[in-house]
Design a binder for these strands. Structure first.
Length: 650
RNA sequence: GGGCCCGUAGCUCAGCCAGGAUAGAGCGCCGGCCUCCUAAGCCGGUGGUCGGGGGUUCAAAUCCCCCCGGGCCCGCCA
């Protein structure tokens, strides 16, 4: 971090203004600093000012006194302003453009670069994300999870928190056992099969899993007389017909016949689960081997996608290490332990009555559905194996213990709301109040295919690998067109970055509560409102700077940026530290995405009518170059926080 | 049956949590702009009963209630 002479971090002018303004207003109004800060916003029109506060919510009169107080405070702090006025109840502060420009020149000369305003109280944050079952390649649903989770991690890091990113490998569940059964029947391994099919290992496993799962469905449904089962059977058979075309015939037949020959396929799966949980061979090596193979594929895809993890946590390890057993022991000693439907369980309704309802802090941080009774949570199956939720309780505790985390963010689909809540309630019941309160379910809506859901079990999904390849192919065409004679290496590198940028941006920009219908043409549209648009704008700004050469801050004339469009662009770029900080605090990468689009729009509009390198006045030219540098560096940092590579040339 | 989420321009979305200043973008469509810093761009035009109704308020897209439409969840699955 660049520091000033006094050893203090160099603060950008808007972060400083925010600090002074919120302090002044919170003193004046007697309100908590945080509340004031939350309400200080960008005014809807730039004529109003640079920052704005809705005074009328707190005072119906005497607005001039508030303005006078703020003026006095800014004065004391040496912040020059062009105006502090109350207009229609809003207190608007407009900074002195010349001083702003001077500040920027000074900061840039000292090596400062835009970044989120530092968090007042940095903490340790765990972000768990993606955590796809290791039985098929990552599809676009997982990609949304990864894009969100990784952006959150980058944002939180940028804000100054210590972030620990974890992937939970769910190898103990039924689905892994199904895949294992498939490979057992097929008599092959993921590596062998992948080579034969000419695909990544995760794809090979995905195919075996879908075939096996669907075959089991078909066998089960065959015996049924119910009308709806007949329809389901037809659907399963159709899915099998499609799957048949995608892999080696003999392997397909071997699985199909194998499943048909089994007396009780469900019991075969359950048996694998039991033996795997117990850590017995050969199931242990079989299931592990499959999961490892898929993870290899995940890593390859994720690396491409710009996503990395600090730790991979194996669910099986939680079982084998005794951590799950410990949770069950703790449950047995707990006053909330009951027998429910003949199985060991936690009395969730009682936990709610005794630990949630009387505790206002818990109530406000763990909103429960009203009028909906959450049933007791079963911890152990009758056959002694554990349930996913039980293991998740152990994992939740582990995430805090292993990292010393202050808070844990779980990026998990919105369809998991109830189980996530159950885990938190269970933690509360077992005495892990701090953990229960500081674990957050960051939920997001699913990615749908036009007209239907993606279904891994039927092999009906659009894999992230395919989308990236398609995007890359399209990008390569454009890159070649725009850069005649460019090396293949350049085309390759830029196309890949554009592809990743397009996909990641498309997945992060819509609010997470919005279901995304995957329309490839939209994801692959590199026009305005896209990742590539931002990369392009960055490249354009970069190109100007290259042509301009080094900026001489002694020559740069601040007054050249003090008014008009240049001033507006300057202020907009300077908002970045505040915007990024708020996006981090709100866990809202989409807010950063919107901001970057607006900044790029303003830059492009300005670019069109005001030339930099053709500016005749030397002082103005260096000043404008500094402005371009500010915009370029801001876009670069913002894009990086979203995991989109800022390209220098494209 | 109950709970949660979503419904804003032809299409995709922002704004809603923390009510206020002329409801914003993009795509599409129509018309312009490359002897001048990257046209993945820019400028202009087109397009909105903020799902419907009621309420609270000086003020509602935003808060509350009811209704309609869509999705998800209510398992000894994950």
């Amino acid at each position: 971090m660049s520091r000033g002479l006094a050893g203090k971090p160099l603060l950008d002018p808007l972060t400083r203004l925010m600090e002074v303004l919120s302090a002044a207003l919170s003193d004046y109004l007697g309100l908590p600093r945080g509340e004031v800060e939350r309400q200080i916003t960008r005014p809807p029109r730039s004529e109003y000012g640079d920052l704005s506060f809705p005074l009328l919510r707190y005072q119906r009169e005497n607005w001039d006194a508030a303005a006078e107080t703020v003026r006095g405070r800014l004065w004391e702090e040496g912040i020059r302003f062009a105006g502090v006025e109350v207009f229609r109840g809003f207190l608007n502060v407009r900074l002195d453009g010349e001083q702003l420009a001077e500040e920027v020149f000074r900061l840039q000369a000292a090596g400062w670069a835009p970044k989120p305003s530092p968090a007042p109280e940095p903490g340790v944050v765990v972000v768990e994300h993606t955590s796809a079952n290791p039985i098929h390649p990552l599809h676009m649903g997982h990609a949304r999870n990864a894009a969100l989770g990784d952006s959150l991690a980058r944002l939180l890091r940028g804000r100054g928190h210590r972030v620990n990113v974890r992937f939970y490998v769910d190898d103990v569940g039924r689905q892994s056992a199904v895949a294992a059964l498939g490979f057992k029947l097929a008599g092959t391994t993921p590596g062998e099969l992948a080579e034969r099919m000419g695909v990544k290992k995760d794809w090979a496993v995905g195919w075996v899993y879908s075939v096996t799962h669907t075959a089991m469905d078909a066998v089960r449904l065959r015996g049924s007389e119910a009308v709806e089962d007949k329809a389901k059977l037809d659907e399963a058979l159709a899915a099998l017909a499609r799957l048949k075309e995608k892999g080696p015939r003999e392997v397909f037949e071997a699985i199909l016949e194998g499943v048909g020959r089994l007396e009780d396929p469900e019991e075969a799966v359950a048996g694998i689960m039991r033996r795997y949980e117990a850590g017995l061979e050969p199931e242990k090596s079989l299931v592990r081997g499959i999961a490892e193979a898929v993870l290899e594929g995940f890593r390859e895809t994720l690396e491409r996608f710009g996503v990395s993890f600090d730790a991979w946590d194996w669910e099986s390890w939680l079982v084998w290490s005794g951590r799950v057993a410990r949770v069950i022991e703790e449950a047995r000693r707990s006053r909330y332990h009951i027998i429910y439907k003949g199985a060991e369980a936690l009395d969730i309704p009682r936990i709610i009555r005794e630990l949630v309802e009387p505790d206002s802090e818990v109530r406000s941080r763990m909103p429960l559905p009203r009028g909906f009774e959450i049933p007791p949570l079963i911890l152990v199956r009758s056959d002694g194996t554990t349930l996913y939720t039980t293991r998740d309780i152990a994992y939740s505790i582990y995430k805090f213990e292993a990292t010393g985390a202050d808070s844990v963010v779980n990026v998990v689909g919105a369809d998991q709301r109830l189980p996530q809540l159950q885990v938190r309630l269970a933690l509360l019941g077992l005495g892990y109040r701090r953990e229960a309160l500081n674990m957050l379910h960051y939920d997001y809506e699913i990615v749908r295919l036009p007209g239907r859901r993606m279904r891994s079990r039927r092999g009906e999904y659009v894999a992230l690998d395919e989308v990236l390849d398609e995007a890359k192919a399209r990008a390569a065409v454009e890159v070649r067109e725009r850069n005649p004679g460019a090396s293949e290496e350049f085309v390759e590198r830029v196309a890949e970055a554009v592809a990743v940028g397009a996909v990641r941006f498309a997945l992060v920009r819509p609010g997470r509560a919005k279901p995304i219908t995957l329309q490839l043409e939209k994801v692959l549209d590199f026009k305005e409102n896209s990742g590539p648009y931002l990369q392009y704008t960055h490249a354009r700004a970069n190109s100007i700077l290259e042509k301009h050469g080094p900026i001489d801050y002694l020559k740069a004339r601040p007054a050249a940026l003090a008014e008009g469009d240049r001033r507006e662009l300057l202020v907009e770029a300077l908002r970045f530290p505040l915007v990024a900080a708020k996006a981090a605090d709100d866990l809202a990468p989409e807010d950063l995405a919107s901001y970057l689009l607006r900044l790029a729009d303003e830059f492009n509009s300005w670019y069109q009518k005001d030339s930099v390198i053709h500016e005749l006045d030397e002082g103005a030219r260096h000043a404008k170059a500094a402005l371009v540098k500010l915009v370029r560096d801001t876009l670069a940092e913002g894009l990086s926080l979203l995991g989109v590579e800022p390209l220098e040339k494209m």
